[in-house]
Design a protein around this nucleic acid. Sequence first.
DNA 1: GTCTATACAAAGATAGAC
DNA 2: GTCTATCTTTGTATAGAC
Lengths: 195, 195
Amino acid sequence: METVTTEEKIIRAADKLFTQKGYAATRTRDIAEEAGTNLALLNYYFGSKEKLFKYVVQGKLKMLLGAMGPALSDEHISLEDKISLITENYTNLLLENEELPIFILNELTVNRELFAKITQNTRQIAQPVLEKQLKERGVEISTTDLIINTLSMTLFPFIAKPLITSSGLVKEEEFVKFVTDRKKKIIEWIIKITI
Amino acid sequence: METVTTEEKIIRAADKLFTQKGYAATRTRDIAEEAGTNLALLNYYFGSKEKLFKYVVQGKLKMLLGAMGPALSDEHISLEDKISLITENYTNLLLENEELPIFILNELTVNRELFAKITQNTRQIAQPVLEKQLKERGVEISTTDLIINTLSMTLFPFIAKPLITSSGLVKEEEFVKFVTDRKKKIIEWIIKITI
DNA sequence: GTCTATACAAAGATAGAC
DNA sequence: GTCTATCTTTGTATAGAC
């Protein structure tokens, strides 16, 4: 018997609607209705539409970035395994939340400070370790290129999914198989490029 | 002595503001003011904010997709040159219009039909030729992976620029050099992976 | 904490005069 | 084609009952 507070109901309703329709097209009245409550409560708990939105975004952001940092900065995990980790984790996460990248990218253009802290922290810890691991291998590629190449190949299909499917490059119903099959390939490609 | 119609002034003002501030944050009153006219004229010519926005987006879309199709479907251009073409052209275009990818991706999620025609056409003409060229080389990779890999590595840094710079991975003032240097590297990487 | 009701401001859209 | 004035929707905020 799960008890859900009104605050939590509002958060879930907001998450659902913001995700479905975007910030601008979502009306606070609709969020309140979806949550089975009213406008006044929404403002009572969150103060404004924008604050509610930020709350929702923060949760998604942590989901996207949180788990990756510790693994990347672990010296005992090989480069190959780190690449696998990034590709596997992000592919699986985005398969469950296909709208996430666009959602994040949108907010990102407006609210850079919000993201700076988390990403800077992750990078500052992980990059030196990667640097060292690359140097030990005597590889020419920079950590920056390595990271960006891995993220590019993994994330881009999700970001550009509407383009990819509507162009007919990958059929809508084959998309899951496409990105799933790509996981192994990406790891091979990155290793081929990098090492 | 260039004569600019009111309609054209509105278009230019809209392009400028939508690009600077995004759709939601741009007020029709500001567009009208920027164009040196008024709200009523804006609606007289375009009917609504959304229609005006679509008009602006269409122009950008053609810029992004229009030039690429004929080159890709030309049998006399080698695979290597086509990869260079994509990477060079898109990098240069996006250096001049850094906001373009997000702008497009946003509109894309709402307005798929608008994009389907142009992209389908380009793909249908180009893909068979690429297919043939890959087969002649006896290469294992699919045209889909080839295209998506090339676009990924080229476009992703622009799409994720706020993330990349705010994380400190690439400094804001080094970004132009970063993507410029990447052009040559991407071509090498893609060839290494593909051929 | 929760709700109803209401006030207010900002922004998109439109009517009607010229 | 152009403008002024006005309408409508929507986000925000608050008063007051329970």
